[in-house]
Amino acid sequence: MTKQTISVQLSQTKKQKPDPNRLEFGRVFTDHMFVMDYSAENGWHDPRIVPYQPIEMDPAAMVYHYGQSVFEGLKAYVSDDGKVLLFRPEKNVERLNKSNDRLCIPRVDPDTVLDGLKQLLQIEKEWIPAAEGTSLYIRPFIISTEPYLGVAPSKTYKLLIILSPVGSYYKEGIQPVKIAVESEFVRAVTGGTGNAKTAGNYAASLKAQEVAESKGFSQVLWLDGVEKKYIEEVGSMNIFFKIDGEIVTPALNGSILEGITRNSVLYLLKQWGLPVTEKKISVDELIQAHKDGLLEEAFGTGTAAVISPVGELIWKDESLVINGGETGEIAKKLYDTITGIQKGALPDPFGWTVEVDTVTQSC
Rank of each mutant, 00 (worst) to 15 (best):
L10H: 11
K14C: 11
K15I: 09
P18T: 06
P18Y: 11
N21Q: 14
E24C: 09
F29N: 12
T30V: 04
A40Y: 09
E41W: 05
D46H: 10
M57N: 05
Y64F: 15
K75E: 02
N97Y: 13
L114G: 02
G116C: 07
G116Y: 03
R139S: 02
K155I: 06
L160D: 02
E172R: 14
I174P: 11
P176I: 08
A180V: 05
F185H: 13
W222Y: 08
K228Q: 14
K229W: 07
E232S: 10
E233F: 00
S236V: 09
I239F: 04
F241K: 04
K242G: 06
G254I: 05
N263C: 03
V265H: 01
Q271L: 07
W272T: 02
L274I: 14
I281C: 11
S282H: 14
D284E: 15
I287N: 14
Q288K: 15
E297T: 01
A298D: 00
G300V: 01
A305I: 01
V310I: 15
E312I: 07
D317A: 06
V321Y: 05
I322T: 08
E326A: 12
T327H: 00
L334I: 01
T337E: 03
I341P: 07
D348F: 12
F350H: 13
V359I: 15
C363S: 13
